[in-house]
Simulated assay, not measured.
Amino acid sequence: MKATFKIYTLDFRRPSGTSRGVLTQKETWFLILEHEGHRGIGECGMFKGLSMDDVPEYEATLQWVCDSIEKGKTYLWNALRAFPSIQFGLEQAFLSLEAEDPYELFPSEFTNNEAPIPINGLIWMGDKGYMLEQIHQKLEAGFRCLKMKIGAIDFKSEIALLDAIRNEYGPKRIELRVDANGAFKPSEALKKLTELSVFKLHSIEQPIRQGNVGEMKSLCEKSPIPIALDEELIGVIDTVDKEALLENIRPQYIILKPTLVGGYKGSEEWIEIADRLKIDWWITSALESNIGLNAIAQWSYTLNNTMPQGLGTGGLYTNNFECPLQVKNGYIYSRNDTGWPPDLIERLCL
């Protein structure tokens, strides 16, 4: 078996704002396997500034994986505990290599275009006019669940924006999720959550920065809005530590990004614990290309979670890859009348 990797830079159609800054480009890495005339591909979408594996030796570790590929998926996955995005790319690449179609990792009604997945529409941070423009576009596109990034503009402006939305669209018309990306200070978080609660929000992701376990536990006990842990899960590797974290904080939800938490296997460890503790969850992509998004969406369908998932990021880039994924009326579909470029893996090998 031969393994190689290739770096690829994705260009945003429009600068996209988060509480960590404005994104114009996103680097990603593709792991490509070749064996007996077959090829498989997986995406290692390390997220700079957020992933635990954003370290100087990232590409050296990818090269070690390529040099050690004969050791097999199980050995390598266990050796890569500190590199969750490479774990995920490795899982994808082996499934892709073994599949009849290298892009159909989990054959199902979804991949046959018989059943779509409900998703939320993502509203990026910006000034009030830009955010309202996005909201109207998502509603015209048929979305009934919106996720808004907050924490980049001043809080009063965000309150005014939410007030304008709710004056026009009640909670029966639109389910609103907000994502603070840890933007609130622990000392002010409960007050802000109380102010936000009048807007009948579905949930708020990561109101304070990860690592403040005691403060987060207290917020989950007192908050008038259900809290979802996101960044809090990053870097928690051992299953014993995962269980201890959820038992301690007791959030209402957790959000699983396979790229950030160790791929399918790492995510499924979280799901098993959350189900046991009666904590709800949903799946979200982490700005991967369509190759990684496709791998997440196919797996997500097999989990039978009926909540809207966070899988609507495929249209963010000018140089993404053509693929069967299509977002329509608040759902993501895998069309069987549209395929992948026939030479895509070969081109990435060059």
Rank of each mutant, 00 (worst) to 15 (best):
A160D: 15
E188L: 08
S68H: 11
I345M: 07
K48E: 10
I174S: 00
A79P: 00
L176K: 03
T338A: 06
E57H: 08
A141T: 08
I174G: 00
E109S: 13
S289W: 01
D343K: 11
D337T: 15
P224Y: 14
D241S: 15
H38Q: 11
K265V: 15
L76Q: 03
E221L: 14
C323S: 15
I345R: 03
T259Q: 13
K278V: 07
G312Y: 07
K149W: 10
A152N: 06
T74W: 05
P186K: 13
I165Y: 02
S51F: 00
G42H: 04
P258E: 01
L31P: 04
I225G: 06
Q252R: 14
P171F: 03
D337G: 11
T259V: 14
G315H: 08
I119R: 04
P224S: 12
S223K: 08
I117M: 07
P324Q: 00
T194S: 09
L196R: 05
E288C: 11
G129F: 03
M125V: 14
I279A: 05
E109D: 14
E34M: 05
F5I: 02
Q210W: 05
G17D: 00
M307A: 09
A115M: 09
T313N: 07
E269F: 02
L190D: 04
T18M: 10
L233Y: 06
E215L: 03
K172R: 11
N305T: 11
D53N: 11
S267W: 08
K2A: 07
W64K: 14
E100V: 13
N320I: 07
K222T: 09
E175N: 09
N212H: 14
F94G: 02
P342D: 15
K278D: 12
I345Y: 03
K156E: 09
E231K: 05
E133C: 04
N120Y: 11
E109H: 12
